[in-house]
């Protein structure tokens, strides 16, 4: 794979082989052309969502719904800025958050991002996924692309993955009684295609690629932003950084943010729920064992 910089983007030299603008058939390894990455099983893929270039167009939401055949939900208006999607749900796997900071007078607005923050939220595909660790049926699994997917033919709708997720991503659809969330376009990855949201993103706010590669790209972007006067920029979900605390290690889908995580409805220091299994089980058993010993003493007393 020849990864060269073409028009400022790290695209494959293969783009030169396809001068047409319309194709009758899917192209082999299409992601090489659209995202500059060849999708191969056994490697680790994810998203880097750079919120500083998000324009809130919601193309990602639409592309996701289109490809995944997801129905419109959260019908109606929320009154929360331009965010009428509201939250990630069983039928909504990309959600663009609109943070409208109106405290400043128009003449005092910051030149950078003009008091508007936008972020396309998605399943984080955690390295140590709490939903998968909680799943008692094995329906949630790590794919050959290091992404986290619910197998619909196995899920029995116990719903335990829903409270397990530290980001409130996984949701149960009461209609079909199964848990749903972003699959990182598992079917597209298998066909060598870039996930629908990333492919549709007009500003490349959502970048798809190999996680290690994306982390490097993000670090470079961060350095650049700090250099040009955005000291508040930081990565959410980079190894052991905010968003990847408590044993989550890192998030395959991570973000570049410019304000505190809570502003984007994200927890600063999520934990790994499975860390609490042993302490709580052992304390509970100790209490019962202690009381059982007391019972032995009571019962063996002659009256």
């Amino acid at each position: 794979m020849g990864a060269a910089m073409i028009a400022g983007l790290p695209l494959s030299n293969r783009v030169r082989d396809y001068p047409e603008s319309e194709f009758r058939h899917p192209l082999p390894h299409e992601a090489e052309l659209t995202a500059g990455v060849r999708i191969e099983p056994g490697r680790s893929y994810g998203f880097f969502t750079d919120t500083t270039v998000c324009i809130g167009c919601k193309a990602c939401e639409v592309a996701c719904k289109e490809w995944n055949n997801l129905p419109a939900d959260n019908l109606g208006l929320t009154g929360d800025s331009y965010d009428n999607t509201g939250h990630l749900s069983a039928n909504t796997w990309r959600h663009v958050a609109f943070i409208e900071q109106m405290a400043d007078r128009p003449t005092e607005m910051r030149p950078f991002q003009s008091n508007w923050l936008m972020m396309s939220d998605v399943c984080k595909h955690c390295h140590n996924p709490p939903c998968m660790e909680a799943c008692p049926t094995g329906a949630l699994f790590k794919t050959e692309f290091d992404t986290v997917v619910v197998q619909q033919d196995i899920c029995n709708g116990c719903g335990y993955c829903v409270p397990a997720c530290p980001f409130g991503v996984v949701d149960l659809n009461p209609l079909d009684g199964k848990a749903h969330k972003c699959t990182l376009c598992y079917d597209r990855l298998k066909g060598g295609l870039e996930p629908a949201c990333a492919k549709s993103c007009p500003t490349d706010s959502i970048q798809f690629g190999e996680v290690a590669d994306l982390q490097q790209r993000a670090a470079k972007r961060l350095e650049h932003l700090h250099a040009v006067g955005v000291p508040s920029a930081y990565l959410y979900g980079a190894p052991d950084g905010p968003g990847a605390t408590g044993g989550l290690k890192y998030l395959n889908a991570f973000f570049l943010l410019t304000d505190r995580p809570e502003v984007y409805n994200l927890p600063e220091a999520p934990t790994r729920p499975s860390d609490r299994v042993a302490p709580s089980l052992l304390s509970g058993l100790a209490a019962v064992a202690g009381l059982a010993v007391a019972a032995v003493a009571l019962f063996s007393r002659r009256d």
Binding site: N69, P71, Q152, D153, G157, N173, L175, D176, G177, K178
Partner: peptide, 14 residues
Amino acid sequence: HLFILSHKASAEAQ
């Protein structure tokens, strides 16, 4: 039209 297979249906997603 878009349909979701309900959990009452005997057919399975697969």
